[in-house]
Design a binder for these strands. Structure first.
Lengths: 405, 405
DNA sequence: GCATATAGTTCGCGACACGAATTTAATGCC
DNA sequence: GGCATTAAATTCGTGTCGCGAACTATATGC
């Protein structure tokens, strides 16, 4: 009587084709809105008839709405389609000092934003966050809330979905997802901040077709979001991307992780502050913002500290370039404000250790929005991504799955 | 009149479902042969009727043949199916000193094997290789040759398919693929040796379901085959996986790549020989084989040299573990013969720098066959992989593609 | 008013997977 | 030996899907 569920392999049915094409059309609308059915057919390669059926379905599902009527030199006028911006996503970005809470539409545009303090107590922070989320939902009763997306400087277990390894927050193992879900009744998606930035690039960046890139987030530490073969790399346990804790020099200063000479010991905001304080011999507490301001005003020691920081960032990037050969490296963080002055230093360092061909582009990103935008993508990919069609259908008409014998 | 081919997005048709399911069934037959249609239906989740149609197609395509008749306590006997082992793949593994040429069936079993010298002249090596391939084809006129797979210690440009960056061979930019194809008339696939080992693991290894692992090949240098999210990582230019040239210590000895203190300077066969010669102060030329033999016979200095080598390998693996969090690391090379003695050293080193959770398994592989088996997979994946069905169909009845307006 | 051009819909067709019914082929009990 | 039972494999009717041609709707301009 050894009956096991053998249905482990992913087989395709007719529905599969529809799911795939639904995803293609939905994403084309997202990218090129407003766009007519005829153009969708041209761009996708699908037949106009097929596009009509799919868009009809998407409109039924409330993801797409009719937009304005277009104008052409001749012929019937096209009715443009666009995403339904009454679908909203609640987002939050946890950082050691403060948490940013926001409300965004499906296009990644923010309807509102606010900040709240982050505390060492995960339970209290979760409660405060849940309260603000509930309030946002009450204030906007006309919106359809798709979910909550949260980015944070830490790692989320693939299995339990708990927050694990968040040294910069100082949190222990904690079920943030469960806490917020229970308190708000909305589905929550968690993601590491660097990974969220990578998602933001893919979903809302101009670079549509890049399949291999790495995001490097520089703040208190250094985080990396690794995106290869068109997919985010999470690794077995969701721990992938901790290049910040790879040693550049085994005899270097100690790191909070327990290691020595880690990349982030040399290239983080904290490292720049350390460089500055070592050289100026002042005892006063500075923030990285202050350091940037000093550099802006021409302070030689501040400039020198930033120079060392940027060089170290480039040095660490070499291992990513050598090992993964990405097409592009995207830098996120406050330091990008000094990109004009020091960006070339990074490129020089990256180019130095390069083995063959052309080194990748290194590009800064305005940092404030990337993390939040990424969490929007995090929530949306459940609906827009592959095999999302099946989920929608289930949700819509609650078809039961096949019983397992 | 700006007409561009807009059909950039991958859309699905009815055929797509068949392609996917054909791949599922074909791979199930490969994995579980001999297997009956009924079992295929059970394991795949497809209907028996569907399985019959697909297997009929596969038999028409000559990929599958009828095997023996099974026995059951009751009921009609199943006719087992298995892969057609008259389909053969020509394989070659280029190494700095010698090249191994072989003939394998679709199951990765070798029908014959021979070796030939590798020279510094790529043109001469290609000619010699092509001659042996032609001879193998003449000797086996009853076989259907699917293609030639070649693994080598170097990188292949994604664009031109030329061999680029092969410092250990001492070759310049060279069109090996084109040379062999012109000389033999058979389609050639090139791949880096470490990547080939990774493919061998996925196709012929026991570990069917591991989606994230890294192969580390240790010989003259150190190569890595990075396999993440169920896919080989090649990077933008096919250069991904050169972790062997990431510095462990920026003040270390010079490397052939131009850098300093690269991983392979500490962890390769050459490094172990250097350790030994430094300690014993002998001037005689030793091979790594000799060193292993010395260690086997209990030579203290040889043991010490290997110990340092294994520790260095583990130290370099830490960056892979930290950055990519694979589920498993597979080690390939002659050094695996001393795994019992020193394997634990690697595991200890890997475990030391580990941030959270459990470190990955580190596992040795008998090295000789891995590279060659990988090239078999390299050729097969064109026929067995996704969207292979379309290619077969084209090949079979030469349907023309749609004309682009 | 009619040719022309373009957007969007309708409809018949073929490919496909599904699932029930049927056929085929074995075993074992009476 | 006859017949119920069991299981493999095939056949056939049904629904879904994309394709492509035909058709409808709606605009411009001579």
């Amino acid at each position: 009587m050894k009956r096991i569920d053998f249905t482990n392999t992913q087989v395709a049915s007719s529905q599969t084709a529809r799911d795939i094409n639904r995803g293609v059309v939905l994403n084309l609308i997202r990218r090129r809105q407003p766009i007519s059915r005829a153009d969708l057919a041209r761009v996708s390669g699908l037949q106009r008839s097929t596009v009509s059926l799919i868009t009809e379905q998407l409109i039924r599902e409330r993801w797409v709405v009719h937009g304005p009527i277009g104008r052409l030199p001749r012929g019937r006028r096209p009715t443009f389609l666009r995403l339904n911006d009454r679908r909203a996503i609640l987002v939050a970005d946890l950082r050691p000092q403060q948490t940013r809470v926001g409300l965004a539409d499906v296009n990644g545009n923010f309807l509102s934003q606010e900040t709240m303090p982050t505390t060492n107590d995960p339970r209290a922070t979760a409660q405060g966050l849940a309260a603000r989320i509930r309030r946002l939902m009450e204030v906007h009763p006309h919106l359809l809330f798709e979910g909550v997306g949260i980015s944070l400087p830490g790692r989320i277990s693939e299995k339990t979905q708990h927050v694990i390894f968040a040294p910069n927050l100082g949190w222990p193992d904690f079920d943030l997802k469960g806490a917020i879900e229970r308190a708000t009744g909305v589905r929550v998606e968690l993601e590491n901040a660097a990974n969220a930035c990578a998602l933001a690039e893919v979903w809302f960046g101009h670079t549509e077709k890049i399949r291999d890139f790495v995001v490097v987030t520089v703040s208190e530490g250094i985080g990396t979001g690794v995106f290869l073969n068109g997919q985010l790399v999470r690794g077995r346990t969701g721990m992938a991307g901790e290049f910040g804790h790879v040693p550049l020099d085994p005899s270097g200063p100690s790191c909070a992780c327990g290691g020595k000479g880690c990349w982030e010991v040399y290239g983080s905001n904290r490292a720049a502050l350390r460089y500055y304080q070592e050289s100026s011999a002042t005892q006063q507490e500075l923030s990285f913002q202050d350091l940037l301001a000093l550099a802006q005003s021409g302070d030689a020691l501040a400039l020198k500290a930033l120079e060392k920081m940027f060089q170290a960032i480039g040095r660490g990037m070499r291992m990513i370039v050598t090992g993964l050969a990405p097409e592009e490296i995207v830098v996120v963080g406050e330091l990008t404000r000094q990109w004009r002055r020091f960006g070339s230093l990074i490129e020089k360092e990256v180019g130095m250790g390069f083995l063959a061909g052309r080194p990748p582009r290194v590009r800064p990103v305005e940092g404030e929005m990337a993390r939040l935008r990424g969490t929007v993508a995090l929530v949306l990919q459940k609906h827009f991504g592959p095999s999302a069609g099946a989920r929608e259908k289930e949700h819509e008409s609650s078809l039961q799955g096949k019983a397992i014998a």
